[in-house]
Amino acid sequence: MRVGIAGITGKFARRLVAHLLENDNITTTMKGYCRNPAKLPEALRLFPKLELIQGDAFDDEVIRSFIQGCDVVVCCYLGDDKLMVDGQKLLIDACDEEPSLFPKDPMIHVKAYLETKQNVAGVHILVGGFMEPVFSPFFNIFDPESNTFRYWGEGDEIMEGTTYDDAARFTAAVVVNSKASGILKFVGGCANIREIAQSFEKVYGVSATLERRGSLDDLYKHMHELRSSNPQNVYGYMSLFFYYYWINGQMLVGPELDNAEYPEVKPVGYEGYMSKWPREQLATSFFSLAM
């Protein structure tokens, strides 16, 4: 099997590569597509079963070269609307011209676009939110200096979470399942911010403080104000949009999940994730994701 990974320098993509390499039951070679291969660890760049192709998400000619010969293409893009919709459409167009190939992407617009294609069968994997950013500066939820958990809403909103590593394990299992199709839903753990704080206290034996920042309506207004004032600064408001739709109930993945279809993957919940890290490293654990 030959697997193409678009956006291979990202954290999730690296974990996906690691778990594909762990599977001894199949012979897997890979092609990676990225703007800057130098961002990959040297061990990965020099891996004999991985071919790296350098190019931009909108370089049609290079993208077509990238997908040639692949049995599966996994899209790991992350960026603004142009990249996430137009960039993926371009990738799908290239796949559509290559028989017996399907790319995976969870985006609604991309799903609709896939359904217009004759030679591309899409598999869409939903995992809730990634757990690691909850404790990182990205969301600004957890303050490691004061053991404070900041939140918007009432504090009882469910946060379905899956670690990057477990999401990559599920994806690797789906990639080698020739019968996989449609929308697949996987979740590692479900908890609200109060329960996450309680798990923190249990794991580390210290008190945690909860700090409410405002209602969900306040959050909605705030994130749109930031976007309107500086739309080009995607990372200035991206985390707030993620957080809002994560906890407002619109994007819940469960309760009906596909975890049981892949029993070889045993995901951890929030408490299990925290148990893997010393307290002083929890806030930076997001940045430790690598091969």
Rank of each mutant, 00 (worst) to 15 (best):
F241C: 06
V203H: 08
V123Y: 00
Y151I: 09
A38C: 07
K39G: 01
V175G: 02
A112T: 14
D143E: 11
G122K: 03
Y151Q: 06
L16E: 00
H124L: 03
V62F: 06
K276C: 14
P133E: 05
S228N: 14
I125R: 00
E256S: 14
E271K: 08
M251P: 09
G7Y: 00
E42M: 06
A94F: 03
M159I: 13
G269S: 09
H124C: 08
G55I: 04
G249Q: 03
G55R: 01
V203P: 09
I247W: 02
I8E: 09
I196D: 06
Y243F: 10
P267D: 00
M84R: 10
R35M: 07
W152Q: 05
N140M: 13
Y77K: 07
A13M: 03
A43L: 13
Y113A: 00
I108L: 15
F66Y: 06
K31Y: 08
R64C: 12
V206T: 12
C34E: 07
G129E: 10
G87F: 02
G205H: 10
K117Q: 11
G153F: 05
I193T: 06
L184V: 02
M84H: 06
Y244L: 15
F242C: 14
I193E: 03
A260C: 11
I5N: 02
V206C: 11
T28F: 07
T162S: 09
I196C: 09
A13Q: 02
P255H: 04
Y151S: 03
E22L: 14
A43G: 12
E264R: 08
D166E: 06
L46P: 08
Q68Y: 12
S181L: 08
M131V: 11
K39P: 02
M131L: 13
V73P: 01
C76T: 03
G129D: 12
M84E: 09
F130Q: 02
K111H: 14
